[in-house]
């Protein structure tokens, strides 16, 4: 089964993946067995810079006893002008069992899924979606809050260009949270009628009584395009800090998908403070990706740790 976009997923599948992630985490911490998929080899096509996501997928594959091949833009035939379609076809006939793909174009994982037989896992496509990040975030929220249903979540910053925001928005909506998008007009889509969220241009009303505040990374190039006037101005309006959080619930947690620009989206004190779960998000990323691989390679049977024997090759 592909994992292309949270928007296209049933809530039950999301919940199953989160439960499986929790089991992976518990087993890893207990030192007990996790399912193993020896002989499975997954291609990791990272056609856009990525450290944390790539390493997280690598770690997940290692823990499940899987093999993997990593490809970047450099050193592949793509740099010789081969099309994505042909690259994917090549990997298909080299009998890779699955494909993890990061690409700078929205819909790239959908394109790959058309030409690849095995499961395709979207590791971020352009401005569209980043499903495993949203799953990691949901796991983190559920751990801290005990639930997702009924929570008020504010996503703050450059929503327009953010695949993290899109995936989180759909996931949280599907699991019953109330989502608020907060950012300057130039960094929010102009037409938000099909996004299941309310929209705010001012920070304080946007995060009022929030249980969760998720700050998005601001790419400094946005300033060159004139979308924001200056980084200082942006920080003065949208930075998540103690003063802003006074408007949220007292136990509001603060999230950031990274890489963080300290002092811009979030100030130091908040990023390192007791309400910050930024490092937990990173940690949970590995467990979520283990669950995603297990779903992809268990032939539909998501079992307790002893799946080792049950796994068919």
């Amino acid at each position: 089964m592909h994992l292309l976009a949270i928007r296209e997923m049933e809530p039950a599948r999301i919940e199953q993946l989160l439960e499986s992630s929790q089991r992976m985490k518990r087993a890893t911490i207990d030192g007990s067995k996790v399912p193993q998929f020896p002989g499975r080899v997954v291609g990791m096509l990272f056609l856009e810079d990525s450290t944390r996501t790539r390493v997280s997928f690598e770690q997940a594959a290692r823990k499940l006893g899987m093999g993997f091949s990593i490809f970047g833009m450099q050193g592949t035939s793509l740099s010789k002008g081969e099309s994505l379609k042909d690259t994917v076809l090549t990997l298909k006939y080299e009998r890779l069992d699955g494909l993890v793909m990061r690409h700078n174009a929205s819909g790239a994982a959908h394109l790959a899924a058309r030409f690849f037989d095995g499961p395709v896992i979207n590791a971020g496509d352009g401005m569209h979606e980043h499903p495993t990040q949203a799953l990691a975030d949901a796991l983190t929220i559920a751990e801290r809050k005990g639930k997702i249903q009924g929570l008020k979540v504010a996503i703050v910053g450059d929503v327009m260009h953010s695949r993290v925001a899109r995936s989180n928005l759909w996931l949280l909506h599907k699991l019953g949270a109330e989502v608020h998008l907060v950012g300057p007009r130039n960094l929010l889509p102009r037409h938000t009628g099909k996004l299941p969220a309310s929209v705010h241009h001012d920070l304080l009303p946007g995060i009022e009584d929030a249980d969760v505040v998720m700050a998005l990374r601001l790419q400094k190039e946005r300033m060159d395009g004139g979308l924001i006037s200056s980084l200082g101005e942006y920080a003065s309006l949208y930075q998540i800090n103690a003063r802003a959080l006074a408007n949220a619930k007292p136990d509001c947690i603060v999230m950031h998908p990274g890489p963080i620009n300290r002092g811009l989206e979030v100030d130091d004190q908040t990023a390192d403070g007791p309400n910050s779960v930024i490092v937990n998000q990173v940690e949970n990323g590995v467990f979520v990706r283990m669950a995603v691989f297990a779903e992809a390679f268990s032939n539909g049977h998501m079992e307790q740790p002893k799946t080792k024997k049950a796994t068919k090759k």
Binding site: R7, S106, G107, D125, G126, M127, H128, E129, M160, R163, R166, P189, R190, H191, T192, G193, K194, L195
Partner: peptide, 15 residues
């Protein structure tokens, strides 16, 4: 088209 569908798909819109 720049609109509610491009906002969902994360594609750059043509207003």
């Amino acid at each position: 088209n720049e609109g509610s569908v491009s906002a969902v798909l994360g594609l750059k819109g043509m207003p």
